[in-house]
Design a binder for these strands. Structure first.
Length: 987
RNA sequence: GUCGGAGUGGCGGAAUAGGCAGACGCGCCAGCUUGAGGGGCUGGUGCCCGCAAGGGCGUGGGGGUUCAAGUCCCCCCUCCGACACCA
């Protein structure tokens, strides 16, 4: 941090009322107190306890930041970028006549808070609440215009009561696929009782025999339909954190997002949310919302819709058995020359052969793999077991680093290609994933890169069934003779083309292009019952339970059948019990024991007596807690009605704030009008929140299908990272830079690079440091001036002085630095100054509207520079200009805005003052200077009347002596005149 | 590898709808103020040639469309981000 600009203030050599850090700090504290005392930023609800001052004529606007996770380190200047952006916009919109709801809450449950508490040996509630207090004070110091009555915290039992209530809504629902929406589970039970609906399961494909089921079986059947359900399935188990994790919390390297611990797949009984029921709608409704295209793309990719077909390959030895595969290229079915199952596919054990078929190559038997003999394993059963061990021992990192060499073993089984009738061998290989499609593929080596590699490695036939294009052939040094002979191909042809070699007695694809071949084969498959067109998705159900202490308890108990039951609403909240040891049970990497949630230590709490309709009985509580995402899935709704004890949110209040945006041109069907946050939440928080919102919408608790109408991603602040010779970051604030530019820390040389600001890179700058050196308004202005809000930007302490000087110069033009008295008079502004003013008003308003705060600041600076020249050192500023200037600046720098407004003689706050309006007549000059080009090069500029016509301008241009000189002897071929813009003379 | 985003002075960045490239700020240079430093004020500052007048070049590179291209089209390079054996 550089020295304060007015370091000499203490020497008394500068004017008493010069705008510097001391003056800024004094007036900022004063105005923050006044705003708080006056409740300046309170946004009235249409009804209920927060309705005082409601004005039905004011259009509404709901503006939100992604709420902070209060860490022990406090805020740094990178965190506040988005907060300042929304605050400036909210302030502008208030002045433009809107009733703006802007509040902030705290996302305070979760792993980091718990880790911090464990490290410091304090209860997470103590550390979390202290962190929240720090954040509150830092944000207050920034001059945020938040409605303080609406600040919520996810750890408040009065808040998580409703998180639990929403959980119960989801638990009490099922997805009616025909209706395409969630419905109360009671309606399902009623339909089952009435016999108008049946539940189909893999065991009962024709429907559960409901009437014959006993109560427990019926409950099991119904529980399996709920939108949140218990499932015993492979999950991401992270021994280092002592908990399971959602897919979204595991990195591509197979490690935990938090803490970077290894993650293993383990079958555990866990709660899952049926987000996959909303696949289609989560994709389709992206078209309704005004979000950055890149975030929509990320969500689409994550949900991963792909169209294709499911095809059944019968097993040769037992045609009753069949392998279902999913493919996006059913048109290549005739080229399927082998099959691959994921190693853990349940069918493997059923179809594996007892002995190797004659002449099975040793490579197929696993020769060369760790654990196999020189000729491979001795039987298919051995090979399957051996390969599973081998694949399991390969970490995800290894699988990546080893350039994806294809490995696998044969199962000794043979399936029948339904199109050709030919037998095809069945393999297992870890390049086929159990988690996608059906966990099995038909391999078409001629037209799939991975299958091609596998086929080459295992000596399998490669049969072309799509003719490669000319370009592809020549690009690979091939010609027409190679079209149907893949032996010379260097790689698979994966593009579209004409089908070849694809005909049997019933269907002929030959000559069709890929799209037609796909539909042709699919129709045939459906006719003969060998398959069907279908859609596959990458998205999995959301693993929702954690073996940690610091989270919302589930409002669930278990009875003697070990079946879950909802805690009645009247019993909410289920308060997180106090326990002495809240640390997770961290396991060794190879410890297979069942995780023990810390809540199991709450011996007095873990069992409870309740009357759930069968008289008082003892139940066992669910001991897992909810993931961090639960509280952040719906907090925007609680801002609307934070004190409501009867409902999540009052319906009238919800409709008022969430129904159709009244400002944006985008199709306005509702949701938060503007939601600003980092792009790192593109799939996690934003996908989960959309899912919960849609469930609440289906159940009638909210009135819009999407939660966030407009999303905006602010950029990240990066700062110089200094590293020592070992590559470890050293505290950036302690690095010394020599005159020659070399940098050292404690005498040792250090390197420099740019990195995201934060504690881990030791390059954080706190807002408090900047307040002390320049004041909060300067920090706000600098954050906004650095560049476009959505761009990443480097923190450069040296540049802060520029915006500080702007405030100082504005102040000096309006206030006498010696006396503190206003320097304005009531004489009208000169014509030129007034035109500049009105152009600035129009430009700044447009910039605020478009969140272009950096150019708004540039325009205000230009206006002030003009003002400085026009009034001179001893002159006075025309009041109309002075007041407009203050109003233009107030959204960006609210404290100095209030102070100047008061010094200009006003008693009320500037916050609700109408934004100045530009006079359209003053936006055009009478004379404009336009460039004259000769042959596209500017040779001179001429002044013409703004409304001069083309002929007049052309005559003036051609008469100009510099133009005449530039043209010389050349003949004029053409003259292009754009009135008011330019002239171009073509020779 | 696939998808997405971005390359403009020494630096951060401007540039409605294809129409004056470099707004505004930092830094730097000069001058004024000051005992000095800091601070403040005024002016200058894309690069090259030139005392100047003036000229040439210039938005990652190469081609194209156009009277006119940072902006549109094609090819290539570099950087950043996301996903990553998804059948």
């Amino acid at each position: 941090m550089s020295e304060p600009v007015d370091a000499a203030a203490t020497t008394g050599e500068i004017p008493r009322f010069r705008y510097g850090a001391a003056l800024a700090n004094e007036l900022e504290a004063r105005w923050q107190d006044r705003w708080e005392a006056d409740g300046t930023y309170r946004a009235p609800n249409p009804s209920g306890p927060l309705s005082e001052g409601f004005d039905a004529d004011r259009p509404k606007l709901f503006i939100m930041d992604m709420f902070p996770y209060p860490s022990g380190d406090g805020l740094h200047v990178g965190h506040v970028l988005g907060y300042v952006g929304t605050d400036v916009y909210a302030r502008y919109k208030r002045m433009a006549g809107y009733s703006v709801l802007h509040a902030v809450g705290y996302d305070a449950f979760g792993l980091p808070a718990e880790q911090f508490a464990i490290q410091t040996g304090q209860h997470p509630r103590v550390t979390t609440e202290r962190n929240i207090a720090t954040y509150r004070s830092q944000l207050r110091g920034l001059g945020m215009g938040h409605d303080d009555r609406r600040s919520i915290s996810t750890i408040d039992p009065q808040y998580y009561r409703w998180t639990q209530w929403i959980f119960l809504q989801i638990f009490g629902s099922w997805y009616d696929a025909e209706a395409g929406r969630a419905r109360p589970i009671a309606e399902l039970v009623a339909e089952l009782d009435a016999g108008t609906r049946t539940i189909t399961t893999p065991e009962h494909p024709d429907g559960e025999p409901w009437a014959d089921l006993d109560d427990v079986s019926r409950r099991r059947a119904v529980d399996a339909q709920r939108l949140v359900y218990l499932d015993e399935a492979p999950v991401n188990w992270c021994p280092g954190l002592g908990t399971v994790l959602a897919n979204e919390e595991v990195t591509a390297e197979g490690r935990s997002e938090r803490g970077n611990f290894p993650v293993y797949k383990r079958a555990l009984r866990q709660w899952k949310m049926r987000i996959t029921a909303y696949n289609e709608r989560l994709v389709a409704d992206l078209d309704l919302i005004d979000w950055p295209e890149r975030v929509k793309t990320l969500q689409r990719n994550w949900i991963g819709r792909s169209e294709g077909a499911r095809i059944r390959f019968p097993i040769a030895s037992d045609p009753a058995l069949g392998i279902d595969v999913f493919t996006t290229r059913p048109d290549t079915l005739f080229g399927a020359t082998y099959m691959v199952l994921a190693p853990e596919h349940p069918l493997v054990d059923e179809l594996v052969a007892a002995t190797w078929p004659p002449e099975t190559p040793t490579a197929w038997r696993g020769a060369g793999l760790a654990g196999a003999g020189a000729d491979g394993w001795t039987s298919p059963v051995e090979a399957v077991a051996g390969y599973r061990r081998y694949a399991g021992s390969r970490s995800d990192v290894e699988r990546q680093v080893e350039t994806r060499t294809k490995t696998g073993v044969a199962t000794g089984a043979t399936a029948i290609n339904p199109a050709t009738g030919e037998p095809v061998p069945v393999f297992i290989a870890d390049y086929v994933l159990m988690g996608y499609g059906t966990g099995a593929i038909m391999a078409v080596p001629a037209h799939d890169t991975r299958d091609f590699e596998f086929a080459r490695a295992f000596g399998l036939p490669i049969t072309p069934v799509v003719a490669p294009t000319e370009g592809w052939l020549t690009g690979h040094g091939l010609d027409d003779s190679d079209v149907d002979d893949a032996t010379s191909w260097p790689e698979a042809f994966t593009g579209s083309g004409q089908a070849i070699g694809s005909a049997n007695d019933e269907v002929v694809l030959d000559g069709l292009d890929t799209d037609d071949a796909k539909s042709g084969i699919t129709t045939w498959l459906e006719q003969v019952g060998a398959g069907e067109g279908t859609t596959s998705w990458k998205l999995r159900d959301w693993l929702f339970s954690r073996q940690r202490y610091w989270g919302e308890p589930f409002p669930i108990v278990f009875d003697e059948h070990d079946l879950p039951l909802a805690v009645p609403e009247s019993e909410l909240p289920v308060v997180l019990p106090e326990i002495d040891d809240y640390a997770p049970v961290v396991k060794g990497d190879d410890d297979d024991s069942v995780p023990e949630p810390p809540l199991g230590r709450a011996t007095a709490w873990r069992e409870v007596e309740m009357d759930l309709g069968e008289g008082p009985r003892t139940y066992r509580r669910e001991l897992n807690t909810m993931p961090n995402w639960a509280g952040s899935c719906w907090y925007y709704l609680r801002y609307l009605d934070p004190t409501n004890e009867d409902a999540l949110v009052d319906p009238e209040v919800e409709r008022h704030w969430m129904q159709g945006s009244t400002t944006e041109a985008a199709p306005a069907f509702g949701g938060v009008d503007l939601y600003v946050g980092g792009v790192e939440h593109a799939v996690l928080h934003l996908l989960y929140a959309r899912f919960w919102h849609k469930v609440l919408f289906d159940l009638g608790h909210v009135s819009t299908p999407e939660p966030f109408q407009r999303l905006y991603n602010q950029g990240t602040v990066v700062a110089t990272v200094f590293r020592d010779e070992r590559g470890f970051p050293v505290p950036a604030g302690e690095v010394v830079e020599a005159d020659d530019g070399t940098t050292t820390w404690q005498g040792e040389p250090v390197t420099r690079e740019l990195g995201r600001m934060g504690k881990s890179l030791k390059n954080g700058v706190t807002p408090d440091e900047v307040y002390a050196a320049y004041g909060a308004d300067t920090l706000r202005l600098y954050e906004m001036a650095m560049g476009p809000l959505d761009a990443d930007r480097p923190w450069n302490a040296q540049d802060i002085v520029g915006v500080h000087r702007l405030l100082q110069r504005v102040w000096r033009n309006l206030v006498d630095e010696d006396t503190g008295q206003p320097r304005v008079d009531d004489a009208p502004a000169g014509d030129d100054l007034r035109r500049v003013l009105h152009r600035t008003i129009a430009g700044v308003a447009a910039d605020y509207e478009g969140l272009r705060f950096n150019t708004a600041i540039a325009k205000i600076t230009e206006l002030n520079n003009t003002l400085t020249k026009s009034v001179g050192a001893d002159g006075r500023t025309p009041r109309e200009v002075a007041e407009a200037m203050v109003l233009l600046l107030a959204p960006l720098a609210p404290h100095i805005g209030e102070e100047l407004w008061a010094r200009l003689g006003h008693t009320g706050t500037v916050v609700w003052e109408p934004f100045p309006e530009a006079d359209p007549d003053l936006l055009v000059d009478e004379l404009v200077e336009i460039p004259v080009q000769v042959g596209g090069k500017v040779r001179t500029r001429i002044k013409v009347d703004a409304d001069a016509d083309a002929a007049t301008i052309e005559a003036l241009a051609l008469a100009d002596e510099k133009v005449v000189a530039a043209i010389g002897d050349a003949a004029i071929k053409r003259v292009v005149v754009v009135p008011g813009r330019l002239v171009n003379i073509v020779t």
